[in-house]
Design a protein around this nucleic acid. Structure first.
Lengths: 198, 198
DNA sequence: ACAAAAACTGACCGATCGGTCAAATGCTGT
DNA sequence: ACAGCATTTGACCGATCGGTCAGTTTTTGT
């Protein structure tokens, strides 16, 4: 679970080498994310990924330190963006944080559909992973923001609902462009959050 | 966990035999559902279940035809109740079906939290199971009902959101009794559904 | 052209998976 | 007491899992 070879090697090599290497790595990550999304992390074997990429299983483990490393590196951009959102929301006041959380969360999910699908597909198993440990805290703070940082249990339940409502659009394909979809998601989520008090 | 098997000697022979058998089966199903809920179906081995029950792996396979059979029988009551809801909604008019769908779905989820958690934890893998094939159709019809049977894509997206919003309360324990929780869920879901058009 | 480095692979490993089976054990009715 | 049935179990099976390694092919710098 330590750093893979790309960190140690590839320092003094030529551009072509780096391109070939990074391209293979990207192909592996693409194939893996697709398979993880439809069959889950545990439901996808290294053999499956190797067959999809068109290489041997050993090649995967030459480029990555293990199956977990593939998963972690695949989720890295999404986790990073989630961290940015987390820090943004931390600086907002209680009366403005809710709408910002909804919009930011919707944007995040729509920007990383595949990653969200993978994460959503095996929440208990993956959030237990050490490399994804901080995600749990970010989720908790996002929930708090969605509830306007209110201690009211009903507000927290509604926040929980919004948390679960957005990622599901990653599963079923929908006949809408992303701008319209984003609008519907934000408006409906806001409707749910407002309905609690009304 | 099977220590008090010899109690109630005065009972009828057939009844006792059947009770012992059905109780062991129930213990297996309870242990399995708990493990499935926290680790997922694929993430739970027969060894894990056997250890939790306190018996051998072979005993599980004496009572059930296989790991899948445990899963199917565990989900059977929930699937049956879902079927009842499905038939109820089928007889409702387009302008009354939405609220009934919300209430019925919320009740269903709250009545079968564990089963919903298990199903929700491995949707793609489990809905592919032959014994759960009809669930997919029921989900589609529930989505249609939640959208008031409207072909409007935005209505269908909101229905999808409600579908995903409810089961998440099964994951995180919440400090509310079921009546209050049911009320919040129904009201917030209705808020999301109404916000679309407003 | 050629040695070194990088990329790749087949063969193999221990562990674990779901599942089978014959034998052992406990319980029941007579 | 005894025959018969239900229940339980350890030993075992083939398949597959993630992962390792020695060796081969391809690419690179000179």
């Amino acid at each position: 679970m330590l750093s893979d070879r790309s960190a140690r090697l590839g320092e003094g090599v030529g551009d072509l080498s780096r391109n070939v290497r990074s391209r293979t790595r990207r192909e592996i990550l693409d194939a893996a994310s697709g398979l993880f999304a439809v069959a889950g992390f545990k439901g996808t074997s290294l053999q499956d990924i190797a067959a999809e990429v068109g290489c041997s299983k050993a090649t995967l483990l030459y480029h990555f330190d293990g199956k977990d490393a593939i998963l972690v590196e695949m989720l890295a951009p999404a986790v990073g963006a989630f961290g940015v959102l987390d820090r943004q929301l931390a600086g907002l006041a209680d009366d403005t944080v809710q709408l910002a959380a909804v919009k930011g969360y919707v944007d995040l999910v729509l920007s990383f559909r595949r990653e969200v699908t993978v994460l959503h597909g095996d929440i208990p198993g993956l959030l237990r992973h050490p490399a994804l440990a901080d995600v749990q805290g970010m989720v908790d703070r996002l929930l708090d923001a969605l509830a306007s940082r209110s201690p009211d249990p009903s507000a927290q339940v509604t926040a929980l609902m919004v948390l679960g409502a957005i990622p599901i659009v990653c599963m079923k394909p929908v006949a809408m462009n992303d701008d319209e979809l984003r609008d519907v998601l934000v408006r409906s989520a806001a409707g749910a959050l407002n309905a609690r008090g009304a």
